[in-house]
Nucleic acid binder design. Structure first.
Ligand SMILES: [Mn+2]
Ligand SMILES: [Mn+2]
Ligand SMILES: [Zn+2]
Ligand SMILES: [Zn+2]
Lengths: 146, 146
DNA sequence: CCTCCAAATGATAATGCGTCTCAATTAACT
DNA sequence: AGTTAATTGAGACGCATTATCATTTGGAGG
């Protein structure tokens, strides 16, 4: 949970030969101070509310750049649009549980599953570069109300 | 690996109050005799080649019906289109490994992972209704050629 | 500061998968 | 065979995302 000053954020871009534009800084700052899993439109709307006008095209382009450089993870929960979350550190991986009623997202990390995934891949002479694991169902609150 | 006669396929639809139209039978027969993971366009093209002209709209509608009734599984490998595969039996689940170079799909089933997924869900008071697990990387052939 | 230019932006057109509409057709029951 | 509600085909439409291109701008160099 490091606090990110303005300069620190600019460094993120400049260290990668990218211009530190106000639009990029706005998008990155929003994601760094948000624990939710936002889609592009939600990012656009939240910035609007803060009088930060960034075009949708630029939001998509910035997200692409941030994903390429591993500052952001792009997630597909199967509802037709991609979601984005900060990627605190490249080694801090987690998977997701998504409630099909209220949309709540629960994050989890299970080292045993991670190890087994690697084993399964090896068994098939497959080089695992990434994986996705999504559990869909009902969160405790939504299961309660039947 | 049961062989499916024409009558057997018609039964699939009629048992569910659905008309056994030639278009639906064509789509179902193709999927039942195919071990690949086809998208809607590929299904359309393969039927065309066999002089079975089924409109794209009907293919989508038929797939929707087949998925609803658990004869077919709809898969999302994250490349922007859905893929479909026969669902031999409702209890015979498997997950997928996808080569990011050649697109090859390897199917696998790991009971330990399945059990752990259930445990993780329970730990969060989450009712798991389904899950997806995709391993992305390089198949043995593509890893070989560097 | 001032200049310069490749990189970035915004507006909007284009793409692509998938769904919807609606008139015409047809499966299946009597 | 006649009836009718379900299904089909053709094309319009929706929506998230990407591409285009004229305009703007970050930041290096002077
Ligand atoms: Mn997350
Ligand atoms: Mn499969
Ligand atoms: Zn819920
Ligand atoms: Zn391969």
């Amino acid at each position: 949970m490091t606090t990110h000053g303005e300069g620190s954020l600019k460094k993120v871009f400049r260290d990668n030969q990218l211009k530190a534009t106000p639009q990029r800084l706005d998008v990155l700052k929003l994601l760094m101070t948000c624990s939710e899993h936002l889609d592009a439109e939600e990012i656009y709307q939240r910035l609007l509310k803060k009088k930060k006008n960034v075009s949708r095209a630029t939001i998509y382009r910035t997200l692409e750049v941030l994903v390429e450089h591993d500052f952001v993870r792009k997630l597909d929960f199967g509802d037709g649009r991609m979601r984005y979350e900060q990627n605190q550190s490249p080694d801090e991986h987690h998977d997701h549980m998504v409630c099909q009623v209220c949309g709540k997202v629960i994050e989890f990390y299970n080292p045993k599953i991670e190890d087994l995934q690697e084993l399964v891949a090896q068994k098939h002479d497959f080089v695992m570069l990434s994986h996705t694991m999504h559990i869909y169902g009902l969160c405790s609150e939504c299961a309660e109300g039947q």
